[in-house]
Simulated assay, not measured.
Amino acid sequence: MTFRTLINRKKLLAMIPLSDRTIYNLEQRGEFPRRIALTSRNVAWDLAEIEAWVESRKNCSAQAMRPGYHPMAEPV
């Protein structure tokens, strides 16, 4: 049996300096670990998945794009 350490929103935001909305948008696009619904009003994240995400960002040589930015999209 594997034990996982879960962190709440407060601890997540202390680790990841992004807004709630940005984290939610990243989750919806599959670019951030998904939250785990513990109850109808309480969510948590797997600490190992968050740490792996941070490492992947550190190891990524490309500059991060703005959320919602698509370089191939036609200008309006």
Rank of each mutant, 00 (worst) to 15 (best):
R41C: 12
M15I: 02
L13V: 04
A48T: 07
E27I: 00
W45Y: 05
I7D: 05
T5L: 10
L26N: 04
T39K: 02
Y24E: 15
T39I: 02
E49F: 06
K58P: 08
H70Y: 14
P33N: 03
K10T: 14
P33D: 05
P71R: 00
D20V: 07
P67S: 08
E55M: 10
A37L: 10
S40M: 09
A52S: 13
L6Q: 02
R21E: 15
D20L: 09
M65I: 08
K10N: 15
K11L: 08
M72T: 14
E31S: 10
W53A: 03
Q63H: 13
R21T: 11
P67E: 10
C60I: 05
I36D: 12
G30A: 05
R4M: 14
K11I: 01
V54S: 05
M15K: 06
R35E: 10
P67C: 06
A52V: 01
G68V: 00
L26Y: 08
M72V: 11
P71D: 06
N8V: 01
Q63C: 15
A44W: 01
R29I: 07
S61T: 13
L12M: 02
K11V: 06
R29P: 10
P75M: 03
A48C: 10
P33I: 00
M65C: 13
S56H: 05
C60K: 07
S40N: 14
R9C: 10
N59P: 08
N8D: 14
C60G: 13
L18Y: 09
I16H: 00
P33A: 03
T22R: 09
